[in-house]
Structure formats: structure tokens, C-alpha cells
Amino acid sequence: MSTLLEVSGVSVTFDGFRAINNLSFQIGEAELRAVIGPNGAGKTTFMDIVTGKTKPDEGRVIWGEKSVSLLKMSEAKIAQAGIGRKFQKPTVFEDQTVQENLLMALKKPRGWLSVLSYRAKPEDLDKVAELAKEIGLIDELTRKSGELSHGQKQWLEIGMLLAQEPRLLLVDEPAAGMTPQEREHTTDLLLEAAKTRAVVVVEHDMEFVRRLNCKVTVLHEGSVLAEGSLDHVTSNQEVIDVYLGR
């Protein structure tokens, strides 16, 4: 299996506090990975680094077959290269309809000129409808997304991610604040997505991670503590000490 993203030896310091400490991480194409760890372990900062929001003090972040470094690219360029991100809090454009949200995310040229002259073609609308069906929002297409429930917003955001057709999906606590049924739906969505692309899920909820049934990486104090199947890491004494034991 070829490597899609390789993070090696990355460190970042905020005001003397080492948020990420010599972190190394790899993920291949079409792989589902869960990242767990206590608060302040550096999960969100890790995502910030991959998506270009935070620049690390040292280390390398290498992407794709051509092994391009992501460190010199802007957030928009990284997103265009195929990395999608879902935030912890659902962030959809509440003032706009579900359809507009999805259309905006649809994989199309991102330049301002082509966007200005862009008018939705029938096949684009079909694509949006198909996505909406997948995330269960087909009936809500023309509603403002601000009117959706919390769970629906989470799905819409996942839908927007899928519309981007990224090769790597970074998902931050997708199940937070969801009902059990909604969680199930979310799991299905993520498992489905992971068939064709790499998905990294940051999650606190062990139950949810277990259901994903994938390789798990445990972060602690900014570096990888353990990696392997969920059963493997949960039996690791160190992990129990710093994370599960509390």
C-alpha cells in the first residue's frame, strides 16, 4: 500500500509550550484511521499542521505520489491538492441553502474567474442531489442550513467534504452531540468514504472508534504513544496509564 501522507519529525511550540513534539505519522490511500488521545495531546494541532493553518517549527509533511511538501502551500492550495477537513463544531454556511453549500464544495475550478462565470449545470445538480441523498438531506435541499438540526449540520459538513472529492479526509469528532441513530449513520458514511480514500477520524468516544473497526493511533503530549488495532492499543499499559486509566 503506497503512502498518501507522511508526517515526520514535526514539532511546534506555542509560547514555550510544546504542542507537538517530534511527531511522525503515515497513512496510505483508502485507509481509515482513528486518532485518540487525552485533551491537549495535540490532535487538533496535528490537523492544523496538515491543513496548513499552523506552520511547524521543524519536520516534514510530504503528500502524494509526487512527494510534495505541504509546508510551503497555503490552506487553499492544500485543500485543492485533495485534503478535506471537518471541524469539531459543525461549520456550514448557515445563511445559505443546503444546495448552495454543496455546490460551493463541489469539485470544480476554484479560481475567481471561473467561479464568477459558473452557473450550475444539470449534471452538477444531479451530483448534489445524489450527495444529499447519501447524507440524508435530500428533502432539505432548499432549506437554509442554519435551520438544520445539529446532526444534520454534521452530515452536511461531511457531505461537503465528500463533494470536494478529497483523497484524504480529516474528521474532528464527528459524533459529538449526536443521538445513537445519528451516530450509526455517521459511521456508515465514514466507512463508505474510506473505501475510496484515506480518512483520519479524531474521536474521544471509544464506542464510536470501536464501531469504525480500524487501525488506531494514540497521541500523548504531542507525539505518538501507540499504534495498532483498538484491542492492541487498549491493552498497552502506557495508554492505560495516561488515557484510559483516568
Partner: peptide, 9 residues
């Protein structure tokens, strides 16, 4: 920020 992560400059 969200727009940026959608790939728009």
C-alpha cells in the same frame, strides 16, 4: 477559514 479549507483562495 472554512472557505479556505474548501480550497478557495
Amino acid at each position: 477559514a472554512r472557505v479556505r479549507f474548501l480550497g478557495y483562495s
